[in-house]
Amino acid sequence: MSATRGPGRRFIRDNGLGLAFGAGFLATLAGQAAAGQVQFNAEQHAVGLPSISFSRYVTSASFVADVAENWQSEYLQFFLYVMGTVWLIQRGSPESKTADQAGRESDQDQRVGEHATADSPHWARAGGWRTALYSRSLGLVMLAIFLVSWSAQSVAGWVAYNETRLRDLQAPLEWREYLTCSDFWSRTLQNWQSELLAVGSFAVLAVYLRERGSPESKPVGAPHSSTGTEE
């Protein structure tokens, strides 16, 4: 770990987290597409229908519904976590603020308007609707991605569900009917429950467990009673 430090190497070192997860995302999405096509064609063969090509599969309603249902739940998770941690406290958790910090905090604490510093983002200083909007931008973007993904899941899931109904010689549903259909809610809730489980258990387990060197953990020697970044 030394000597050669070209600009490329420096870029990789400074952006390891975003690059590693980006590469992992693309690889696993490709894997999902490959495995999904095999599974889809196995189901086609089971009922005597022909195989479909890889390009046809990745543009199918079935594939889009599978991808979108996972996207929506991840962004719902981040939205709920970002918003929940504004108001809700978990005593002893590194993910929580202390009880006296609950809420949106003062302009001074948040360095907005006249309390902005020289290197604050422009919209943090601007005041008015720009600061109000910028102060909610993270939650709003998470919410927007959740809503678009969930809507996409509802449309793609509807089409895919109707394909199976037609195959089974059943009448197709209207989109509005699909929204109250068990298939839609089964796909939706199976993702929501796992996100809520993971986040809830993480926030509580991190009271007592440590991962040395991770910013998601308290320092190994920090007391169980210390909440957030307080000492």
Binding site: G18, G22, T59, A61, V67, V148, W175
Partner: peptide, 30 residues
Amino acid sequence: MRPARALTVFWTTLLLAGLVYFLVIGALRR
């Protein structure tokens, strides 16, 4: 140290591409 704009553009593009893909396929297949 300035954060990398290129990576922000990469992730934003990825997200937008994904969402547009959902909408296009959704519209195409319905």
